[in-house]
Each structure stands twice: as structure tokens, then as C-alpha cells.
Computed example of a mutant assay.
Amino acid sequence: MLTDRRKELIAALVLITPFLVIYGWMFVWPTIQMVTISFTNAPLIGKGDWIGLDNYRALLADPVFHTALWNTSYFVILTVVPGTAVALLIALMVSRLRGWLQSLVLALFFLPFILPVTVVYVIWDWLTNVRFGLLQGVIEPLAGRNVNVWRTLPWFMPGVALITIWWTNGFSILLFLAGLRNIPRDLYEAASLDGATRWQLFTRITWPLIWPVTVLCLTIQLILQLKIFDQVYLFAQGGRTRSTMVMVQYIYETAFQRNQGGYAATVAVMLFIIVAIFSVLQFQLLRMRGAR
């Protein structure tokens, strides 16, 4: 028995060694390097002098970092929970369809997810154009005039959040549909025979059984939206880039435009810590709620 167990252990180590090597080379080592560089004044390329916690002290007093942190947090609030709720609602509606109609509707909702961000930018920049944009017909009654969404600060972040939900929700819809299909139909039939309403079916059967998928979607969305960059960078071109700055954009600007590799690494470390803490905390809290 000991010999068999030793052989199994050796086989397991042989199988996981390639993954461990690649993971260590592609993630662990760069992370250690990033943390190390954050304690120096290194440029983007090359070595720098050790300055200890000076970068972190400067970061805490940096108003641009505070703006980037607030904008990122605001964007997360606008997208994570609302986007997941919309995806669940759409999945519930799509799940009631059958055959080719369900496939067609699902494809229409999933299609934006496969578009490159530049295509998304061109589509929505055209739709919201002040002179000829089709959506100005909706914006004008609300604002009383045509609005340049991407040059008007109160409109900018909600507009980007709306586009992001439209663009990325296809993946969450697929996850919810997979979860809904795993719920046994017998439960619904038994509850219907007992006189349960649609709301009771949702709150007593669907929602509890689909909660693990909801936790997964919320966690994935949180991680993705904390790392928002592409949409904000593209739509803010020529606009108030400082006012709309987000964390990853600040890292890019500090490293590639100001050649401050050490300070950019400090911002990246802070973002890494924020993503790790909030992702683990949210996942554990939601899992604990589902267990109850």
C-alpha cells in the first residue's frame, strides 16, 4: 500500500509540475518583482535606488490616486450588482423560451461579448454623437438638450458603466442559464401542485439553488471591473482624463508616460491588494449567506 501511494504521489507531482513551473514563472515571480520595485525609484526599464516606503507615503497623499480610487469604486458600484441582476433577469426570460428561438435570443445577447473593445467604442461613440447620434433622441428629453456624454463629467461614468454591462453580460447570462438548467423540474412541478405562485417558485426554489452561480458571477464581475481600463481610456480621449482616471489607467500613465516604474509598481501593488481583499471577502460573505 505504501508503494502504491508513493507511486500515486510521484505521478501527481509529475502531472502538476508543468503547471507549477509556468505559474511560478508567469505570476509568482513577476508579483515578487513588482513588490520589490515598488520600494525603489526605478524607471520603467532599468534599476533604481532603494527608497523604502517613500512611494507608499507619496501615494497616500497623491490626489490623483484618490481620484482614481474613487472612480474605480464608483464604477464597481455601477456595474457589479446591477450587471449581475440584469444578467439573471435576462437568463430567467431566455430560459422560458424553447428551441431555435431560445438559441437566437441567447446569441443576440452574447454577441456583444465577443466584440473587441475598439468596436464597442466606435459603435457607442456613433450612437451618442451630439450631432447625429440615434441615442440623442432619448438623451434630449431627459437633459433638455443634446449632451456630449463623453465630455460631460456626470454622464461619463454611468455611460461607460451602461456600455460595460451591455458588452460583458453575455458571459454571466450563460452561467445563469447553466445553473437554471441544473435545477430539477420536479421541484417546480411539486411546488405548483401545492399552489405556489411564480414569486414563491423563484424565492423558495430558483434563488436558493442558483445562489452559488450568483456568487461566482459577482466575484468574476468584481475582479473584472476593479481592473477597468479600456473603455474609460477610449471614451475619455481628448476629454477630462484626470477627472475620469481609474486605477489601471493611472498605472499606465505613471509607467509608460512619466517613466516612473517604481511608483507605478506601488499603485499596482495597492490595486492587487484591493482586488485580493475584496474578492476573497465578497466570496466568503456571499458563500456564508448561501449556507444559511
Rank of each mutant, 00 (worst) to 15 (best):
Q221N: 12
Q221L: 04
Q221M: 05
L222M: 12
L222D: 05
L222A: 08
L222P: 02
I223W: 02
I223F: 01
I223S: 08
L224N: 09
L224W: 10
L224E: 10
Q225G: 02
L226R: 00
L226A: 05
L226N: 03
L226G: 01
L226Q: 09
K227H: 07
I228P: 01
I228D: 00
I228W: 00
F229C: 02
F229I: 00
D230S: 03
D230E: 13
Q231F: 12
Q231P: 03
Q231V: 15
V232F: 09
V232L: 10
V232C: 03
Y233P: 01
Y233D: 02
Y233Q: 09
Y233H: 10
L234H: 00
F235S: 06
A236L: 03
A236N: 13
A236P: 01
A236F: 03
Q237K: 11
Q237Y: 08
Q237S: 11
Q237E: 08
G238S: 06
G238W: 03
G239F: 02
T241I: 12
T241F: 09
T241S: 13
T241C: 08
R242N: 15
R242K: 08
S243F: 05
S243R: 11
T244V: 09
T244G: 11
M245K: 14
M245V: 06
V246A: 02
V246D: 00
V246N: 00
V246G: 01
V246F: 02
V246M: 03
M247K: 00
M247F: 11
M247Y: 10
V248E: 01
V248T: 10
V248F: 01
Q249N: 10
Q249H: 10
Y250Q: 11
I251E: 01
I251C: 04
Y252N: 09
E253H: 12
E253M: 12
T254S: 13
T254H: 05
A255L: 05
A255D: 06
F256E: 00
F256N: 05
R258F: 08
N259K: 06
N259M: 08
N259Y: 10
Q260M: 14
Q260K: 14
G261Q: 04
G261P: 02
Y263D: 00
Y263F: 14
A264R: 00
A264L: 04
A264D: 08
A265C: 11
A265M: 07
A265P: 07
T266N: 05
T266P: 02
T266E: 08
A268I: 06
A268D: 02
A268M: 06
V269A: 15
V269N: 14
V269D: 15
M270T: 12
L271T: 05
L271G: 07
L271Y: 13
F272M: 15
F272P: 05
F272S: 15
I273A: 15
I273W: 09
I273K: 12
I274S: 13
I274C: 14
